[in-house]
Simulated assay, not measured.
Amino acid sequence: MEKNNRWRAVVYVLVGAASYGVLSSIVKLAYAGGFTAGEVTGSQVLTGCLVMWLFSMPYWKRCRALTLRTMLKMVGSGTFTGLTGIFYYQSLQRLDASFAVLLLFQFVWMGLAVEWLFHRKRPGQMQVIGAVIVGGGTLLASGLLTGGQAVYDAAGIALGLLAAVCYTLFMYFSGRVAVEVPASLRSAWMLTGGAIVVLLVYPPQFLWNGSLQEGLWLWALVLGLFGMILPPYLFAKGVPSLNTGLAAILGSVELPVVMICSAWLLQEQPDGWQWIGVVLILAGVCLSESRAGLSAGKKIKLL
């Protein structure tokens, strides 16, 4: 039974990461439909928050047992979800979807920095090598070294890197904050934090300016599902049962999903060198977490 639970945790993280991978292409399509970053981000996070609270209804009575400190910790950690969306969606307005996600994948070395900063845990040799490989793979996948046709914008790159910082912190806290709280209820509280920060940055003008009637409601439902409901819920269920390194390796499935979706839906056709860069990035993620992954494999018999 315990082994089956761990396999389910692996599936949860894989599906959650793949959901994030689908997200960027859908956002670009929403922009092409004439909607702004504020409308897309705000409607998505509000929809996701409301749906998750409804989904967690069977656990509402357990809120009485939560301390104010626990609730604030969940809401506070959820703000990183909202900030990730704000920065990432702004970068998508300036960059190709396939390039923006490459910046997001800098969470590999940023995760090492967080561990060093919070726990004084210096990265090992394999982790440093893995981070260097990720950097090299990013250069290849971006097309900078091969004359690719992607659009490069300094502000877009900065926003993409800020999104990576927030995504790193979200992944860090998702497996550590209030793990005793049911996953759906914990996700609802975290999405509340995300909704608060997004709606402070982007007041919900879409509620009265007619955008919902013009089709924004459909994008809000789809983006809310893939961006605000499935990933936080599935990560909340899966990440606490897995080693952090193994979770990072599984989460890297997001990258090939993005590349495939951007080629299929947006006609952003990567060349052979860019695919080699993607393979290098995935290899770097696996290498940087190899020691943790092997340790997890001995423990849970997954690797």
Rank of each mutant, 00 (worst) to 15 (best):
Lys3Cys: 05
Asn4Pro: 02
Asn5Tyr: 11
Val11Pro: 01
Val13Met: 07
Leu14Val: 13
Tyr20Val: 11
Tyr20Arg: 06
Ser24Phe: 08
Phe35Glu: 03
Gly38Pro: 09
Glu39Leu: 04
Gly42Lys: 08
Ser43His: 12
Thr47Asp: 08
Leu50Asp: 05
Val51Asp: 01
Met52Arg: 00
Pro58Leu: 10
Lys61Asp: 11
Cys63Gln: 11
Ala65Ser: 15
Leu68Asp: 09
Gly78Arg: 03
Gly78Gln: 04
Leu83Trp: 12
Gly85Ile: 00
Ile86Glu: 06
Ile86Gln: 02
Gln90Ser: 04
Phe99Ser: 07
Phe107Ser: 02
Trp109Val: 09
Trp109Ile: 03
Leu112Asn: 05
Arg122Asp: 06
Gln127His: 10
Ile129Thr: 11
Gly135Thr: 11
Gly136His: 04
Leu140Glu: 03
Ala141Pro: 03
Gly143Met: 07
Ala150His: 12
Ala154His: 08
Ile157Val: 15
Gly160Tyr: 06
Ala164Thr: 09
Ala164Met: 05
Cys166Leu: 01
Tyr167Cys: 06
Leu169Gln: 02
Arg176Ile: 13
Val181Lys: 00
Val181Cys: 02
Ala183Tyr: 08
Arg186Val: 10
Ser187Lys: 06
Ala188Glu: 03
Met190Thr: 04
Gly193Ala: 08
Ala195Ser: 12
Ile196Asp: 04
Val197Pro: 09
Tyr202Lys: 02
Phe206Thr: 01
Leu207Glu: 11
Ser211Phe: 06
Glu214Arg: 15
Trp219Tyr: 14
Val222His: 01
Leu223Ser: 03
Met228Ser: 15
Leu234Ser: 10
Val239Met: 09
Ser241Leu: 15
Leu242Pro: 07
Gly245Arg: 01
Gly245Leu: 10
Ala248Trp: 00
Leu250Tyr: 09
Gly251Glu: 08
Gly251Trp: 01
Glu254Asp: 04
Val258Lys: 05
Leu265Met: 14
Gly272Tyr: 07
Gly277Pro: 08
Val279Glu: 05
Leu280Val: 00
Ile281Arg: 00
Ala283Val: 12
Gly284Lys: 13
Cys286Tyr: 07
Cys286Leu: 15
Ala292Met: 11
Lys299Glu: 15
